[in-house]
Write a protein that binds this DNA or RNA. Structure first.
Lengths: 238, 238
DNA sequence: CTCACTTTGTGCGTACGTTCACAAGCGCCT
DNA sequence: AGGCGCTTGTGAACGTACGCACAAAGTGAG
């Protein structure tokens, strides 16, 4: 969200953010297909597997180039390669995870990272009982070594899985040490320099969005109590 | 994404999805302010705290009604109440969590749920060693009891924190048992009836999006190797 | 070679989201 | 009471995204 230059490069290059956000989904669907031995796939099939409509899929892929064959479809392996390349997954990205509570543990043990080119190179936690223990093959470093770990492993991407109270401080230290992308699981809005990219994952927010839609469904006539209350308030109040 | 009726109700009612997604962020910022003893806040201040621009914030809030005072700002407590009501957080939402690996543990222990009206009423897992143990004050039920637990607690929202392989099966069972909103942490595209709302949280996808932007930054002249390669391929290939 | 069929890639209309900029409204000071 | 300064609420312009529908381009049969 920080960087969203659409018009870079000579020929109107630059892929829309919405498309970038879907590419990983396509990639996963393609990997599944490849595992099943499928070698060629049509936009219709792939779109179904990825849960989008086929026109959108084709338009998304067209931003990468013209990698399909009319009348046939897309070569699965080739498309996997092209999308991976576009996303920068043909190289390995060293990652540091800060905070190893249940969530940090889950992240450290999640196989989906390594298989996509993300290498968890360092784990950092403030808890002395945790420091020195090994999680998913990596030894936990003390918080004091954060900067050293980042520099030593040339970490570009940091994952914050700490309590909210210390998240901003961790973010500041990560940025100061050279990290330029942060995945933040703490429920606060981080403030970072504009060249640093932050993405937020917030489970509580997702639940609240579900609650909103759920509440909507409860109203048989299409209007829920809160709407009636609001109309009433408006009619009287102002 | 399933339900997106913008034009419900008599007077062009219906809040844009983009706005709904931001309301929980505002809510959190407001709660923090309230804890700090702040009673009134301007759109500018609140926007800064929420990490958005103030015009957007005001437009978002205007969808709920006219709850500010010109020349003054918004009353913090009143706005908290109005947003909570709009999101349906003035009632309690019973939730079931399926899958209690590290992620499920993290979710079950996360205090941010309970404080927002979400009550974790049931925990379900397939692992016999886990069944019967207590996590965050709730006893883990066997997978076979999934439907019974859902019905017994009138669960409307289900959280899937299982391995991808079983997620679709769990989703089917949740839906059959009456759940109408699902928060899915498994890295697959769930297929559910259209009236069921699904939101997806996928950490691997977020990392891949970061990698894309990170890769962009590496190119000093604004063009990365992959772009040059693509242009070349196009120039020759077709 | 030609024709029928399939599927991609994209131009275009529409809907949605964001931002600017300002009129309307409120409180305070004199 | 009146004027001044501040902040909201919103009309309007802009930019982005979506999805239809079709031309372009490929395959395979006869």
């Amino acid at each position: 969200m920080t960087t969203s230059d659409r018009s870079r490069g000579p020929r109107g290059r630059g892929i829309p953010d919405a498309t970038v956000a879907r590419l990983p989904v396509y990639l996963r669907a393609l990997s599944t297909l490849a595992d099943d031995g499928v070698t060629t796939v049509s936009s219709e099939e792939l779109a179904t597997a990825a849960g989008v409509n086929s026109a959108k899929l084709r338009k998304d892929l067209s931003y990468l180039g013209s990698y399909g064959t009319r009348g046939v479809g897309y070569d699965v392996d080739y498309l996997v390669y092209q999308i991976s390349r576009e996303l920068g997954l043909t190289q390995d990205w060293p990652v540091v995870i800060v905070g190893l509570g249940h969530l940090g543990h889950a992240l450290a043990n999640y196989g989906g990272f390594a298989s996509r080119g993300f290498a968890i190179r360092a784990l950092v936690d403030a808890d002395p009982d945790l420091v020195g223990t090994e999680i998913a093959g990596t030894t936990v470093s003390p918080l004091a070594d954060l900067e050293e770990q980042v520099r030593q492993h040339a970490v570009a991407i940091g994952v914050i899985a700490t309590p909210a109270a210390v998240a901003q401080d961790i973010a500041d230290r990560l940025v100061a040490a050279g990290v330029s992308s942060i995945l933040n699981f703490a429920p606060i809005v981080l403030s970072v320099p504009s060249q640093v990219e932050v993405r937020k994952v917030d489970m509580s927010i997702e639940l609240q969005i579900l609650a909103f839609h759920e509440q909507r469904k409860l109203a048989p006539g299409g209007r829920v109590a809160s709407e009636l209350a609001r109309d009433l308030a408006e009619a009287i109040g102002r």
